[in-house]
């Protein structure tokens, strides 16, 4: 039985040839590849959330749009805001890092 990670490794191991670079810098090009792969994974996660929302709505016997319209305020809204702020800090940390660029 081949698990998901083994399946990806099996595919990648068969790839041949070189990898021509489009951008001026290899590190930037590889980072772009990682970002685009994450974009695809975000889309997969969104599909999964959508699926779960529809199932929950069905279980509750209500329209999925009504379920998506649920708004939170007060303590729950504050908690969500904190979570969002922390997410942005994690993702954009490099933009606020005080260290100047230096040669290694």
């Amino acid at each position: 039985m081949t698990n998901q990670a083994q399946a990806i490794a099996a595919l990648v191991e068969t790839a041949r040839g070189n990898r021509p670079q489009s951008l001026e810098n290899r590190e930037v090009e590889e980072t772009l590849n990682i970002a685009l792969a994450l974009l695809v994974e975000l889309s997969v996660a969104n599909d999964k959330i959508d699926r779960l929302e529809r199932l929950v709505a069905k279980l509750r016997g209500e329209d999925v749009e009504a379920l998506r319209e649920i708004r939170y305020d007060g303590a729950v809204a504050d908690q969500r805001q904190e979570t969002t702020d922390a997410l942005l800090m994690r993702v954009l940390r490099i933009l606020i890092d005080p260290r100047a660029q230096a040669e290694s």
């Binding site: 399946a7 099996a10 772009l32």
Partner: peptide
Amino acid sequence: SAANRSAQEMIWVSVGEPTYR
């Protein structure tokens, strides 16, 4: 060009994973 190459490679990942699995 960089994004298109990346997307082309991801075609094969997206179909290669279920194939080998």
